[in-house]
Amino acid sequence: MTATLISLISILIGIIGANTTAITFKKHSLGVIGNTIVGVFGSILFIKSFGRLGFDPFTIVQSGNINFSLLLLNLLVSFLGGAIALILIKKLKLILNKNS
């Protein structure tokens, strides 16, 4: 498994996180396409920000073998990144609509 494949799986998990959050909390939904876009960017943002702590895709495969504990942490942060980004974007949208 290469670092590129891990990155793509992380983005997919971020999309799942955003869409799961939208299904669970209907008031935070931005539609399927909006949720998917927010999931992609939320996942990338969180992995790039927090991945410097040692669970970015390159560190996961650095030794030639997959470090599954780091992979699990990466996927968890990616899921939470999609979910949190969806909530924050929806709140930002509501604030901007109030000011209009």
Rank of each mutant, 00 (worst) to 15 (best):
A3D: 12
T4M: 11
L5K: 08
L5R: 07
S7C: 07
S7K: 03
L8M: 11
L8S: 07
I9A: 11
S10P: 01
S10M: 01
S10D: 13
I11W: 00
I13C: 05
I13G: 01
I13T: 05
G14L: 10
G14R: 03
I15L: 08
I15S: 02
I16T: 02
I16L: 12
G17E: 07
G17S: 10
A18Y: 04
A18P: 05
N19T: 09
N19E: 14
A22I: 05
A22H: 03
A22Y: 02
T24L: 12
F25P: 02
K26V: 07
K27N: 13
K27P: 04
H28Y: 10
S29H: 06
L30I: 06
L30F: 09
L30P: 11
G31Y: 04
V32C: 05
V32M: 11
V32E: 08
I33V: 12
I33L: 15
I33T: 09
I33N: 07
I33D: 06
G34P: 07
N35H: 09
N35F: 10
T36H: 01
T36R: 02
I37C: 07
V38M: 07
V38G: 05
V38F: 06
G39L: 10
G39P: 07
V40E: 01
F41R: 02
F41N: 08
G42E: 04
S43T: 05
S43Q: 03
I44G: 02
I44F: 06
L45P: 00
L45M: 13
L45R: 01
F46C: 11
I47D: 05
I47R: 01
S49L: 15
S49E: 08
S49P: 02
F50L: 15
F50R: 00
R52L: 14
L53G: 12
G54K: 03
G54W: 03
G54T: 06
F55H: 05
F55T: 02
D56S: 14
D56F: 11
P57T: 05
P57M: 09
P57E: 10
F58K: 11
F58M: 11
V61Q: 07
Q62E: 15
Q62M: 14
Q62A: 15
S63N: 14
G64C: 14
G64T: 08
G64F: 11
G64R: 08
G64V: 10
G64N: 12
N65C: 09
N65Q: 14
N65V: 11
N65P: 05
N65A: 15
I66P: 09
I66F: 04
I66T: 12
F68C: 00
S69G: 12
S69L: 15
L70I: 09
L70C: 13
L71Q: 10
L72I: 13
L72V: 12
L73P: 07
L73Y: 01
L73A: 14
N74W: 00
L75N: 09
L76N: 07
V77H: 01
F79T: 01
L80S: 09
G81W: 03
G81Y: 03
G81K: 03
A83R: 00
I84P: 00
I84E: 02
I84L: 13
A85M: 13
A85C: 11
L86C: 11
L86T: 04
I87L: 12
L88E: 10
L88I: 09
K91N: 15
L92M: 13
K93G: 10
K93C: 06
L94F: 08
I95Y: 08
I95L: 13
I95E: 11
L96Q: 12
L96D: 12
